[in-house]
Amino acid sequence: MTVIIPYDDVENGVCVSFGRAPYFLAYDTETGCRSQSPNPAAQEQGGAGLKAAQCVADLGARALITFRCGENAAEVLAAAGVEIYKAPEADVDRCLQAFAEGKLEKLTKFHAGFHGIR
């Protein structure tokens, strides 16, 4: 199965934002292969979460590991059958390790959007 992590190349870790993460890291749990693709929503004026969620669904993901996620994106991901897990820390390797061991908790709180406010 494919697991997606929003990835910040500057911080070299899980991006604090889902919708505006510069990259999505795709990890294949069967093959152990990792690939990185740019997030098409990163620079959008609005609706970034929706577009990012569409991208994650299109990548064939079954799981997403993220710090946070907006309500709209969560709705799209739920419809697409993508489980959302809470990233326990910024280290990608350790996140994937925890996921493999079944130690990650589901993300249950979704924000209503930041809309330019940080």
Binding site: A41, G46, G47, L50, N72
Partner: peptide, 22 residues
């Protein structure tokens, strides 16, 4: 979906869908 610059539309499980508030 591609045209909407507000990203109000998604296409999931072969179903187009609108987020009206967007």
């Amino acid at each position: 979906v591609d045209f909407c610059r507000f990203n109000a539309l998604v296409y999931i499980r072969e179903t187009p869908r609108v987020f009206p508030e967007v």
